[in-house]
């Protein structure tokens, strides 16, 4: 339903910002709501009513995160989880990092935090939709292990197709040693070292 023009950004010339200067905060209540809303509104032409935001952040506050730099909110992720047919699945609804802060691993960190909570909460898989033209988002989710499960024909009103992306968690009994569980910290720093294009994207049509 919604699209964003993605600009590929590289790490070049942006090294002045230290990853440690970014502070990640779990959604903390109504005072965070205007921050989340303005960030999403700013990046997307199509607005959501306040009820849409509340739907997510009231029911799953633990799945929403905000990224701050010197007190300024520069990125956010909003998610949900629940029973879908026979599986318990997580869903990434909105992910935004404002332009000057893209390419620094912020989106990866935000979304990784949400996915971890989903995994710990017993989700079997995580899904989302991304526009086929949103190279940045597709690369980011690809690195996290998402596959393109389906293509959704003219999913967005502007006529652009979407991919449904899916991340399947390993079955614990089949797979006792997970890279993620085995060494959480390593995987974090690992992500930060990969130069990548951050993206902001609202995955709509829920």
């Amino acid at each position: 339903m919604e699209r964003k023009n993605e600009e590929e950004e590289t790490e070049t010339g942006k090294s002045e910002l230290d990853a440690s200067q970014i502070e990640y905060v779990s959604y903390g209540g109504e005072h965070h709501l205007p921050l989340v809303m303005s960030l999403v509104d700013q990046e997307l032409s199509e607005p959501y009513s306040i009820f849409t935001y509340r739907y997510f952040v009231y029911l799953w506050p633990q799945l929403s995160f905000l990224a701050f730099h010197n007190g300024k909110c520069v990125g956010t992720v909003v998610c949900k989880m629940g029973q879908h047919r026979n599986t318990f699945r997580g869903y990434i609804a909105m992910l935004v990092v404002i332009k000057p802060y893209r390419g620094k691993g912020i989106a990866t960190e935000l979304v990784t935090r949400s996915i971890k909570v989903m995994m710990e909460s017993g989700c079997e898989e995580v899904t989302l939709e991304a526009e086929v033209t949103n190279k940045g988002a597709l690369a980011l989710y690809g690195r996290l292990g998402f596959i393109r499960a389906k293509r959704l024909f003219r999913y967005y009103l502007n006529g652009v197709d979407a991919f449904r992306l899916k991340l399947l968690f390993p079955c614990p009994e089949l797979y006792p040693s997970l890279p993620m569980i085995a060494n959480k910290d390593e995987s974090h720093s690992h992500n930060d070292h990969i130069p990548h294009e951050e993206c902001c994207e609202l995955h709509h049509h829920l």
């Binding site: 990784t112 996915i115 996290l144 991340l167 399947l168 968690f169 997970l178 890279p179 993620m180």
Partner: peptide
């Protein structure tokens, strides 16, 4: 071959 933090080739095989 990049390693993914959350799953392995097996999960991607199962999904596809």
């Amino acid at each position: 071959q990049s390693r993914n933090p959350f799953n392995t080739e097996q999960e991607r095989f199962i999904q596809h």
